[in-house]
Write a protein that binds this DNA or RNA. Sequence first.
DNA 1: ACCCAGGCGGGCG
DNA 2: CGCCCGCATGGG
Length: 283
Amino acid sequence: MRVGEFDIAHTVESAQPLTFFGDERNDRKGITYAYKNSVIEVAQNGGSVEYRAYGPLDADTLRKEVRARFGLDDNMRAIYRSIGTDAFMKSAIKKYRGMRITRNDPWETTLCFVISQFNNVKRIRGIVQRLIAAYGEEHVFSAGDVKLTFRSFPTAEEISKRSVSDLMSHGAGFRAKYIKSVAREWSSENAFGKLGKKEYAKAKEELMVLDGVGDKVADCILLFGYGKLEAFPIDTWIQRIVERTYFNGRKQNVKRIHEFAEERWGAYAGYAQQYLFHFARNE
DNA sequence: ACCCAGGCGGGCG
DNA sequence: CGCCCGCATGGG
């Protein structure tokens, strides 16, 4: 299908959940990822996005999944116009034009970002991959002479059955107790599935009840899991670059930065955050 | 060897 | 509240 203002390389390289489990199958032209009981391959060639699925997925569902996953229905012209109000943001947009906010499975996003705290991207990926290898359900597909094996993302139920020390054996460290607790909460209540219907502030409040989910992780879940584009996750990178760029290098607390982001970027603060984050990490 | 990483919860003033 | 501290682990 034809898509404008989309760059799959910038998108998958910008450390969103899709790439937390990215591996050698992913390159600058495309990505292969698990979706429910299927595997989806997506590749970009100029203004054309091609995709195919292995597994029980009809064409319409597949198309909708790809469009949703890569944020292809976001109006980038409007978003760029809205957030590109200063030279710094304009240069970030220019450099990473086409980078989208991906929409991932909420549970998967929650687990990924609980693991992300006080951690680095490389190790986050490793931990997530080991959890998938250990607890994900295996699926095998044959397409002609090609045999494709993959594991789907482990369910909350599956993770909740494991002991903390079992989870620690995969390198999760002190986060293991959070993983266990969050998995238990997620599998015992079905309220989290409906969080997307609630408004941002209310949904954030409910997520922060979870042990191991604070202000920043909640915003990541809302942005990358529920597509709440007004969410503005403030991590060390964002705090640094916002203070340096918009506050003359003076220290600000998180509350102040949230107020600033809401006022300046409003409904698209999440996009502003992703361009700032990617720009800050790659400079 | 040493430092730090897409923070968080708990404890303190 | 607002700030400060410890925290498992492994890559640079």
